[in-house]
Structures are given as structure tokens and as C-alpha cells.
Design a protein around this nucleic acid. Structure first.
Lengths: 132, 132
DNA sequence: CTGCATCCCAAACGATACTG
DNA sequence: CAGTATCGTTTGGGATGCAG
């Protein structure tokens, strides 16, 4: 009989990956989905499948380079699917995979939190910058 | 009578902030909480209040500079509170504010998603890198 | 239209040394 | 203990030009 609790055993079994460890791949994944553009891209694709140019218009201020890079990384990680239609002109359609769709509600809620708590944060900054 | 739908009116009223617009402050806030270390810091403080050195140990690999910077920014945005005890040696305690606590479950679920879907992402990367 | 390749600058970051 | 300051390197990311 050990001193390890049932809760600890369950915890160990549940998460073999631990984002607090620098060398753990889940740290890398958390960095990836915490990227500047990832939430906006995924939420945009959650609304509907979109073409490259549509995403480019919706994510105001994104450069071609960063949009392409973000899309490639998300595709590599299996979060989005890229379908190329070889017409003239060429056409690229992006959609969420089931895996991406499982992450969508989480990032959507983070984005909504940012929009709905903007006033409070702005107020906090004013206080901090003046008094502090 | 206009052609604007009720859904559109509701949408307009609900979110005056729109993170898709580059100049909107909510874009800035989304960038901030999408930061590399923010989720880890907030989840760590969600477990319990922590001292600077405790955070430093838990977030393996974080540099003093980045930890301090992250904590300052979160404090400025009103997400965490910093309490300094002028003893010898000095002591700094960090805790979540109600605002920070409202964000906590969202980021905690993102962190957990990263840990629990690591295998699928790793598999997707292997497929992409080999075949593609 | 949808990219990729390149150049280049500015910002981010890590390591180190130092301080109240 | 909990930082600040500085420096050197790395990375992010915009601009431009080209290609399928």
C-alpha cells in the first residue's frame, strides 16, 4: 500500500503530457495555438469554410506571409484541411477538420471573452498607468 | 422598415468590439492573452496563489525577464494582483483578480485540450511531413 | 487568385550581471 | 527573494517580386 492517493493516480493516467515542462511536446502545441492569428483563423473557419482571399479580407491587417504560414502550420497539425482546385484562376478552400472543430469552441470563447471584457481591461490599464 | 435583420441588430448591439479589426483594442487584448506564457501563468495561479519563485519553478524554462514581463502586463490589465511584502528577504505574492478568474476556465480548457490531443496532432504532423 | 522566395528591419527573447 | 539593466542573438513579420 502506497501513500499515493487515488486522485493522484487518476491525474497521472489522465495526462501523460504536461505543458509546464519545457521539453514536453504539449508545451510546443500550446505555444502554437496561443499564436497571434490562430484563434482568429479557426473562429473564422468555424463560421463557414472559406477561401484564402476571404480569410485575408476578414483578418484585417494580416500579411500574406503570416496568413499562409499560419494556415500551413494548422494544416500540418491536422486542425484544418486545404483543398486546392486547379482551375484558372486557382482556388484554395480551407475548412476545419474534426480535430480543429473540437478546439473551436474553446478559442471562440476566448475571443468572445476578449471582446466582452475590453472595457474592464481598459479601465484597469488606466488605473495602473495613472496611480500604480 | 430596413432590410437589416433582427439577428444583425442583436449582433451589433452585443459586440461593440470586434477582434477582426486591426485597430480595435480587443485585437490587442486577444494578442495579449494568446501570449506564450499567459495561459500557463493564469492556470498556475488558478491552482493557488503563488510567489514569484514558485511560478518560476513551475513554468519550466521561463526566463526571469519573460516571467516578470508577463506578470506586469497581466497586472496592468487587471487579471492578476501583486502583493509585495517588504520583509527581509522581500516577498511577492501573486493572485488572480475576479476578472482573471473569469478568464481562467477558458484558458485552462485550452491548456487541457493541448495536452489531451497531443497524440492526434503528432500523428497529423507525421502524415503531413512524410506524404503531404 | 494563391501562393512561394527573398530581403530586411524591428521587436522579442535569453543570458548575464547587478541591486534593494 | 524579487527583481532591473544591458547586451547580443533570434525570431516575427512587412514589402516586394515572381510563378503556377
Amino acid at each position: 500500500m502506497t501513500t499515493q492517493t487515488v486522485a493522484q493516480q487518476r491525474s497521472d493516467a489522465r495526462s501523460e503530457y504536461n505543458a509546464y515542462l519545457a521539453m514536453c511536446p504539449s508545451r510546443n502545441l500550446l505555444d502554437r495555438i496561443s499564436d497571434k492569428w490562430v484563434a482568429l483563423v479557426l473562429v473564422a473557419l468555424g463560421q463557414s469554410d472559406k477561401r484564402y482571399s476571404e480569410l485575408s479580407r476578414q483578418l484585417v491587417g494580416v500579411s500574406q506571409k503570416m496568413l499562409t504560414q499560419t494556415l500551413r502550420l494548422l494544416e500540418r497539425d491536422g486542425l484544418i484541411r486545404r483543398e486546392l482546385t486547379l482551375s484558372v484562376p486557382v482556388r484554395a478552400d480551407y475548412s476545419l477538420t474534426p480535430l480543429g472543430r473540437s478546439l473551436l469552441p474553446l478559442l471562440a470563447s476566448v475571443k468572445e471573452w476578449a471582446e466582452s471584457h475590453m472595457d474592464e481591461v481598459l479601465a484597469a490599464r488606466t488605473v495602473y498607468d495613472s496611480g500604480a
